[in-house]
């Protein structure tokens, strides 16, 4: 068995390091993660994206990633994946970011990240909204 797993492990080792030193010091640039109430009547794409990202039956991104705003919710972030920070700087190309969510196995064949679009976990519109949300992080 060749544990390609190690590639993933490498990425998440980074997450642990970043996670522990980063997490407590994250400052809040924007607002807070949208509450359930806000989500019910949201019209803004980024807000709607935040709703999908934090919904445990939808994106559930916090199962693996930490990102700002979570510390004010009851969601417990996992540490499988790198923290979602400075996304705009690191993904200037929106299409590439969208692909990462649509099908993470494009960039990394052995990715642990669920192929949200390819497996129809999320709709195309939901993914577009998440991209807008990620740009606020």
């Amino acid at each position: 068995m060749r544990y390609t797993a190690q590639i993933i492990a490498g990425a998440s080792a980074l997450a642990i390091i970043l996670g522990s030193t980063f997490f407590p010091t994250v400052t809040f640039a924007g607002g807070e993660l949208p509450s359930k109430k806000v989500c019910k009547s949201a019209t803004d794409a980024a807000v709607k994206g935040g709703c999908v990202a934090t919904d445990r039956k939808k994106g559930n991104c916090a199962a693996c990633h930490t990102f700002k705003g979570l510390e004010k919710t009851r969601l417990q972030a996992g540490n499988i994946a790198p923290p979602l920070v400075a996304i705009k700087q690191r993904f200037p190309d929106k299409a590439k970011l969208r692909t990462q969510i649509y099908d993470a196995t494009v960039a990394n064949k052995n990715s642990m990240m669920p192929p949200f679009g390819r497996h129809k976990i999320l709709s195309g519109e939901e993914i577009d909204n998440i991209v807008e949300f990620l740009y606020t992080l």
Partner: peptide
């Protein structure tokens, strides 16, 4: 639908947290 093997969780990511 989430596309994990047993090994994804219990080999590659053993010791990590999912949520």
């Amino acid at each position: 639908q989430l596309n994990f093997s047993c090994a994804s969780c219990h080999v590659a990511n053993a010791g990590k947290r999912v949520g």
